[in-house]
Computed example of a mutant assay.
Amino acid sequence: MDLEKRHLKTVDWTIIMILLGLGIFSYLGISGSAAGIEKAHQQVVWYIVGFAVLTCTLLFDYRLFHNMSYVLYAIGLILLIGVFQTKPINNTTSWYDLGPVLFQPSEPMKLFTILTVARYMAKRADDPDQFYYLYKLIPVAMLVGVPLLLILIQPDLGTALVYTGMLATMLIVGGIRLKHVMYAAGLVGSFFAVMTLLYQYKQDIFFKIIKPYQWDRIIFWMNPDLEAMGRGFQLKQALIAIGSGQLFGKGIDTPTQASFGWVPVGESDFIFTVIAEKLGFVGAGLLMILFFFLIYRMIRIAMEAKDPFGAYVVAGVVGMLTFQVFENIGMTIQLMPITGIPLPFISYGGSSLITNFLIIGVVVNIGMRKDKLRFD
């Protein structure tokens, strides 16, 4: 253990207070959904466990994660491969059924991937040509691409997209050239162009690449009124619930659409809808402000990190959380297509919440050990 009094003085207590605030929003959102107060109490238990995990993470110098990163990455890949032998849940093989809880290996794999990529990039941080040539990006892309592909096969498109957010921010901090960004944008644009042509002239091939249910999400995201009581029901009800919250909301104890089950999975993917309906624009705005300050504090930690490894790790976490928050809130207000991405620290779920606490624990660990060793 490497926890000293001088480290306790440098703990970012603002982040801890933000997490407590997010916990209150999580409790209000879950208890206000159709899942009810029982699930909210279970979330409180997960929060207690999460803070315990965060505390344990602070006991060790974060360079321990640097040394263990490749081992953790390998363990994560084994878990992602092994999950294909499990029984599908909601048409996806994403979870291990551990009896009282479901474990989703793609959640901790986010941290393992960030640590591994950060270690690889930090080793080459002194190389001015680290990303000058395009081929030098291939190892980093493969480190992210392998778990991303395994998660896509499950299939879990939403979680796979989170990995692209992690990769993007880490490469930006690493100094990727604008020229290479344009290449990537060109590839993405070419992919969409090809998919458009296939949809127009070869739909049999198109629907082998894009699953029908994924295409439905795009169609009914753009126009949920096509089937307001069918495939557009979820988004339509979310928009109605958010709008009905108006400025100050309907109140915590007032029965709402969410509490009667008109907002599907209100305790998880659509928990922002529940909060907006209960607490209105003011409450939903306050929640987004908390996320903003959490991300801001992490950016500060990245800028003050004492080594490249710490900076890259925090950059990856910033990309991960920013993408998840933007996508989850965006899909409830028709800004983004609907995916199965939970709202960090708010949505109900043990494996996601504990993983997020572990990840934030690593970030706080990096922040509290930002001062270089001094000799008096």
Rank of each mutant, 00 (worst) to 15 (best):
V11N: 08
T14Q: 02
I16W: 09
L20D: 08
I24G: 12
Y27D: 00
Y27K: 02
S31R: 10
G36V: 10
V44Y: 03
V45A: 00
V53G: 07
T55F: 15
L58R: 10
F60C: 00
Y62R: 08
V71S: 14
G76E: 15
L77P: 14
L77F: 15
L79T: 03
G82R: 14
K87I: 15
I89T: 15
S94P: 02
Y96T: 13
G99A: 06
P105L: 05
S106P: 08
E107K: 01
E107D: 06
I114R: 05
A125T: 09
L137S: 04
P139V: 11
V144F: 12
L152N: 11
I153M: 10
P155T: 04
L157K: 01
V162A: 13
G165Q: 05
V173E: 10
G175R: 01
I176L: 14
L178K: 11
L187D: 07
V188C: 12
V194K: 02
T196D: 09
Q200W: 13
Q200T: 04
Y201I: 11
I209M: 09
I210N: 07
I210A: 10
Y213W: 12
Y213M: 04
W215S: 00
R217W: 07
I218D: 06
I219G: 02
M222I: 10
N223R: 05
F233E: 02
L235C: 08
I240M: 13
G243S: 05
G249D: 04
P264C: 08
I271C: 09
T273S: 13
T273D: 06
I275G: 08
K278W: 10
L279D: 12
L287W: 02
I289R: 02
L294W: 00
Y296K: 01
A302H: 08
D307E: 15
P308Y: 12
A315R: 02
V317K: 06
E327P: 09
M331K: 08
M336E: 01
G340Q: 00
P344T: 00
F345H: 01
L353S: 03
L353F: 02
L358F: 10
I359F: 00
G367I: 14
D371L: 14
R374H: 12
R374M: 14
